[in-house]
């Protein structure tokens, strides 16, 4: 476990340091009088992330434990499946809103993901989706006069 979290921390701090360094380079590419504050911030962040990196390196565990971590790597997919799926589904939903329209894609998304993540009777899922849309319609559209995103259909 210790080795695993060591790898995780190390990877994290390397990535953060890299991003900070890139942002710093970018910050210095803007005219000086408009980028003093971003320059200061990005440099500070880079320094802080280097400290983070140093700390991560210092906490390196024994070699024996490191072997254990190799085994755990295979479980990457199992531990990150859920977040990836959720982002994917949400992204599909947002694209669908723009293409198909708000109401249809919302029903598709809600019913689809409820069915995907759990087992419910269809009428429960459709009922809840309909209720959700009714609330959105009543509150946002009728009462507040907001316009829903325009798609090809509803």
């Amino acid at each position: 476990m210790a080795a695993n979290s060591y790898k995780k921390e190390l990877g994290f701090s390397v990535v953060v340091t890299g991003i900070c360094a890139l942002l710093t380079i970018r910050a210095f590419s803007y005219p000086g009088d408009s980028s003093q504050f971003p320059r200061f911030l990005t440099v500070t962040m880079t320094l802080l992330s280097i400290v983070l990196l140093a700390r991560a390196l210092r906490s390196r565990p024994d070699q024996a434990e490191a072997g254990e971590a190799e085994q755990k790597r295979s479980s990457f997919w199992t531990s990150h499946k859920m977040p990836l799926l959720i982002f994917l589904l949400t992204a599909l939903y947002v694209v669908a809103i723009q293409v198909i329209g708000y109401f249809t894609s919302t029903v598709l998304f809600l019913v689809g993901s409820m069915a995907f993540f759990g087992r419910h009777r269809p009428w429960v899922m459709f009922g809840i989706s309909a209720l959700f849309l009714a609330v959105i319609y009543a509150l946002f559209v009728r009462f507040l006069g907001l316009r829903l995103p325009e798609g090809l259909l509803f």
Binding site: F109, L110, G118, F140
Partner: peptide
């Protein structure tokens, strides 16, 4: 509420909420 119902609803609200602020996808 069961997670598999609450989760999608929260996503639905998050999408609607972030759209509604400036009506911007």
């Amino acid at each position: 509420t069961p997670a598999s119902i609450l989760g999608p609803l929260v996503v639905g609200l998050a999408v609607m909420g972030s759209y509604a602020i400036n009506m911007s996808m």
